[in-house]
């Protein structure tokens, strides 16, 4: 069984991405959401004190994925001041339920550092598929 599709190969850059991201629109939408989230995290999460939860999402263009929409969101840690949780969520096609999973928790800089790591996008895609599968 082919588990991975090589979508971009050259001498310097070999990216193995999980099966399912062959949909280029999906990949582009995810990139945009990640970029918007990074900017908002930088801007909206303070060192300490209250901040509003926020999210960025896109309508799922991949028919093979059981999801109406996909979102990245930040929730204020209700138990530790200044901490936040970065979540990835998938909205069921009927929109009555979402499935979510935490990617990382901690201070603003820790979350941003995590999002800059190699393989972050692959991890998000893997989680998105896991979450969509959980609706089955």
């Amino acid at each position: 069984m082919v588990k991975y599709d090589i979508i971009k190969i050259n001498n310097k850059n070999v990216r193995m991405v999980p099966k399912g991201i062959t949909n280029m629109k999906f990949s582009q939408e995810l990139d945009k959401v990640v970029a918007r989230m990074k900017a908002r995290i930088e801007r909206e999460i303070p060192d300490t004190g209250y901040f509003r939860n926020f999210a960025e999402d896109f309508v799922n263009p991949d028919e093979k994925l059981c999801a109406k929409a996909v979102s990245l969101s930040v929730e204020r840690d209700e138990n530790i001041d200044g901490n936040a949780l970065l979540l990835v969520s998938v909205l069921h096609p009927f929109m009555n339920i979402d499935a979510s999973s935490m990617l990382v928790s901690g201070k603003r800089d820790k979350i941003l550092e995590y999002m800059k790591k190699d393989g972050f996008k692959d991890e998000v895609v893997r989680k998105i598929h896991e979450l969509a599968d959980s609706f089955m």
């Binding site: 999210a55 999402d57 309508v59 109406k68 969520s89 909205l91």
Partner: peptide
């Protein structure tokens, strides 16, 4: 307490 899927 926030809109998780504004584009939906």
């Amino acid at each position: 307490d926030y809109t998780k899927f504004p584009s939906a």
